[in-house]
Amino acid sequence: MKLTVYLAGEIHTSWREDIKKEAESLNLPIMFVGPQENHEVSDNIGEEIYGTQPGSIYKDDAASDLNNLRTAVMMQKSDIVIALFGEKYKQWNTAMDAASAVSLGKPLILIRPEALHHPLKELSNKANVTVETVGQAVRALGYIFE
């Protein structure tokens, strides 16, 4: 059995690569998918497809349409969603993706530091598993195959 795991969360750090490397080191049969990680591509895809927009709000809306389409397809095809909440970056997209996973009935592993326990307590209670580290999330994935 091979699983598809959607990796939701900020795109500014290497946490996705860390998960992929650790899963690979455990020989877990997993394919990882996620949002567009190239910030420039993500921000400009609307104008690339629709053409130049009349202002920054329209440019953002056009890009959001296409990024939301991509996320919806990838998430619906996934078996599990991992959502990482870090301490450094704003987490609006992560919260939206985690809520979408819950709404879709997708199993959800939430990664968040102890410092974010209180603001994420309701979401943690909706997740199947809440952990504090990438390593714990990968070990939770590994347990599925035992």
Rank of each mutant, 00 (worst) to 15 (best):
T130Y: 10
F32Y: 06
I111F: 04
L110M: 15
N67F: 09
K59H: 13
I111V: 15
S103V: 04
M1A: 06
G34M: 03
V81K: 10
V73R: 03
A63S: 15
A62R: 13
M31P: 04
A83M: 03
M31K: 07
N128S: 07
G46E: 10
I19M: 04
L84F: 09
V41I: 08
A95V: 05
I30E: 02
N128H: 09
I144H: 05
S14N: 12
S25H: 01
F32P: 01
I57W: 00
T13C: 06
S25G: 03
L3P: 13
N128D: 11
N68G: 02
G34V: 00
L3T: 15
N93V: 04
L104C: 04
A23Y: 02
V5W: 03
L3E: 02
S25E: 10
L26S: 08
F32E: 06
H117M: 10
T130N: 07
G55A: 14
P35S: 12
Y6L: 07
E17Y: 03
A63N: 10
S78V: 09
T130A: 15
M74F: 09
E40M: 01
Q76C: 09
L66F: 14
N128V: 08
P35L: 03
I109T: 13
S64Y: 13
Y89K: 12
S78H: 11
S56G: 07
K59L: 07
L7H: 01
E122P: 12
E48K: 14
G55Q: 09
D79P: 11
K126V: 10
V102L: 02
E48P: 02
T133C: 01
I30H: 07
W92L: 06
I49M: 03
M96L: 00
V81F: 11
P107C: 07
I19R: 00
L141E: 08
I57E: 09
E47L: 10
K121S: 14
Q53V: 12
D18N: 08
K90I: 09
K90S: 02
A95R: 00
K21R: 09
L110I: 15
M1D: 05
E47V: 01
E146R: 14
E37C: 06
V134D: 14
R139Y: 07
V41R: 14
Q91D: 06
I49N: 03
E87W: 01
M75L: 15
A23M: 08
I82C: 07
A72H: 12
S124P: 00
R70V: 15
F85A: 12
T133F: 04
I11Q: 05
A140N: 07
G105K: 06
A23D: 02
T71A: 12
D60T: 06
T52N: 15
A140Q: 08
V131T: 03
Q91A: 13
Y58L: 11
D79T: 15
I49P: 03
N93L: 06
R70S: 14
V131W: 01
A62F: 10
E24L: 09
G142V: 06
S25F: 02
E122L: 12
R16I: 05
V131K: 01
D65K: 15
I49F: 10
H39E: 00
Y58V: 08
L108T: 01
E40Q: 06
S14H: 05
E114Q: 13
I80H: 12
K77I: 00
N125P: 01
I19A: 06
D18K: 12
H118N: 11
L7M: 10
E22G: 00
E132L: 07
W92G: 00
A83P: 11
N128W: 08
T94M: 02
W15I: 04
V73G: 00
D18V: 14
